[in-house]
């Protein structure tokens, strides 16, 4: 089955197409945050490079977040419209799981930290299992200080991965047995999305376009202010 993967949760945007032969073509823009301008031409490019017609796509995989809200919505709106228009199901993949996937050979505790801006991180913990990684703590929003304190308490060798980890590297380098993943793995990647999604497609872990749920983790500011004013109601 051919899968189209769309990734726009971080500061970069990309897409890829692939299947049991692996990734056939991919595109990626790392500069700026103009996700909406870049994504549709990327899909058109990837389709041509792979030498396929879009009607051959059997499922659309998408990074459902957490991530930067506006970019995330560009990818999700594009992906659900593609899937609905093609009449195919979707494979939702959380951004942090996607970022941990390329570290699946590491025996260390994998700490994923995606830059959430405002001095915060979207973060989750993973360990390797046969064929991939398994989340051992759910995604949450943390300050670098909070995350550092949590990891210190666990006291075991760790691998930090993500643009948030690199941005706040000073908060983590003092930890014992810490290693930083390279820049090339710092952002969620559409290529890995297609690989990860292919395995899930084999297990038929599909959702329909109208069932897809973005993962925001943060409430809109207005609702935060509102509940504060209402005494946390």
């Amino acid at each position: 089955m051919l899968i189209l993967g769309i990734e726009s949760a971080g500061s970069q945007v990309g897409c890829a197409v692939g299947g049991h032969e692996g990734v056939l073509a991919s595109a990626h823009s790392g500069r700026g945050r103009r996700h909406a301008e870049a994504l549709a031409p990327q899909i058109d490019f990837v389709r041509r490079q792979a030498g396929i017609r879009l009607s051959e796509i059997g499922a659309v995989a998408v990074d459902v977040g957490p991530g930067l809200f506006t970019g995330l919505r560009v990818g999700i709106a594009t992906a659900v419209a593609m899937a609905y228009g093609l009449g195919v199901p979707m494979i939702p993949v959380p951004s942090l799981d996607l970022m941990a996937f390329p570290a699946r050979w590491s025996g260390r505790l994998i700490v994923v930290a995606l830059d959430a801006r405002r001095g915060e991180l979207f973060t989750a913990l993973f360990r390797k299992v046969p064929g991939g990684v398994q989340r051992v703590r759910d995604a949450a929003v943390r300050t670098p200080q909070e995350l550092s304190a949590e990891i210190e308490a666990l006291d075991e060798p760790t691998l930090f991965i993500g643009d948030g980890a690199l941005r706040h590297v000073d908060s983590f380098t003092g930890l014992r047995g810490v290693e930083m993943a390279e820049q090339g793995l710092a952002n969620p990647s559409a290529r890995y999305l297609v690989q990860l999604a292919h395995a899930r497609a084999m297990r038929e872990e599909f959702v329909q376009p109208w069932e897809l749920e973005p993962v925001y983790l943060r409430l809109p500011d207005a609702q935060i202010n509102w509940s504060t004013r209402e005494g946390g109601a």
Binding site: A40, L54, G75, A77, A81
Partner: peptide
Amino acid sequence: LVGVSAAKALALVW
């Protein structure tokens, strides 16, 4: 951006 993204996707698909 939600509507623009969806419209471009549908234009590609169709």
